[in-house]
Design a protein around this nucleic acid. Structure first.
Lengths: 201, 201
DNA sequence: GAGATAATAGACAGAGTGTCCAGAAACAGT
DNA sequence: ACTGTTTCTGGACACTCTGTCTATTATCTC
């Protein structure tokens, strides 16, 4: 495959990816047909199948590209010496989401049978677990809960807020503000951050 | 519609509901056909359509029945005098989930385009918001974050843990133990509950 | 047993899928 | 400008699943 054909392929694939995302956000994954996608991407139907096996393959391709980018971003931020601090990586996730809002919307809404959402949660909670572990080891403390569960809960919280934030009407709260709130929730616990104890006293 | 025919209908509907849930857990919502459902429920294909408009209608029916039950349960627990305490309602959600684990698994995994998950999160975060608000009003404190966001985050956290718990290999941790941990996370914040501060001092 | 309702098989048109082919178009190197 | 390679293309194909309908049978009450 020469340079040019590669470029031509890339453009077609990109058009198909973009078409999928916008159509899914418009009318939901199940309601989008291959016919719709190729019409939106302005390519022939046969062309679709030379690039992707089926609609699922295209969807998985989009998710994979997002996760690959996210992973690269996090790798940059998670330098060994900083390991254990959550502010930076959380901010990075929000920044990435704000750069590809549609893809994130699609994934976080659980479109496509939730496969994308599960993949995202797995990737992010794995990273979170590593961050937490590094902190625990560095401080030689023994946490009182399973770090895996903590990471899951922490990521679940962020997914909910991230989705709320992406769908919030303009002007959206600034990224930094949201991240600050989330970090504060993690750091001091909800009791202090919110000014009240849901359990009373 | 007389009593008996009603009963006959009910049994058929129940069989279809159960068939849907187990098939969806087995191979995913999209991969389940009406043909599969009627085969598993041991009824004719035409019969399906006398009870439900299509596969989505059956799915929505299952979700609605779960949410109706949950709402009734929460209403019992959320007596006015206890309003604002999260331990009981959280325990109730976990108890309900452990009684209908398959339906919960299906919903929380985001099957069916995530409509069920979104409905569950909406219902539960609305209830959570009320609980929090009641507590705030009773204590005349001014929380430092939006209670709606807090409720979303809190529910997101619980969904993640609930799903982890439902899928955990036997013997699962006891409901009370998990609930206690979750309440502790809410109550004292992660810092104290986990024994370390993810942000470091 | 009579009357009512639910369940059934089978046929139907329609939409979407995934595969294939032969020809058109785009491009790189000469 | 010509050539060879690769991508893109429309159209045709068999297939699966859908949702509707009809005529018939099974089930239950009284």
């Amino acid at each position: 495959m020469t340079v040019v054909e590669d470029r031509r392929s890339r453009r077609t694939r990109g058009a198909l990816r973009d078409a999928l995302v916008s159509l899914v956000l418009e009318r939901g994954y199940a309601a989008v047909t291959v016919e719709d996608i190729v019409a939106a991407a302005d390519v022939g139907r046969a062309t679709f199948y030379t690039h992707f096996k089926d609609k699922e393959a295209l969807y998985d391709d989009v998710v994979a590209s997002v996760l690959r980018e996210l992973k690269d971003r996090l790798a940059e931020v998670l330098a060994p010496e900083d390991a254990g601090f959550t502010g930076q990586p959380v901010a990075e996730v929000f920044r990435h989401a704000s750069e590809r809002p549609d893809a994130y919307r699609m994934i976080l809404r659980g479109e496509g049978d939730g496969r994308g959402l599960r993949a995202f949660e797995d990737a992010w909670s794995t990273a979170a677990h590593e961050i937490f572990s590094a902190r625990v080891n560095a401080n030689a403390v023994r946490p009182r809960v399973d770090l895996q569960v903590l990471a899951r809960a922490w990521v679940g919280e962020q997914v909910a807020v991230l989705l709320w934030w992406l769908d919030a009407p303009e002007p959206r709260p600034a990224t930094d503000q949201v991240v600050k709130t989330l970090v504060e929730l993690s750091r001091r616990g909800r009791l202090w951050a919110t000014g009240f104890d849901p359990e009373g006293r």
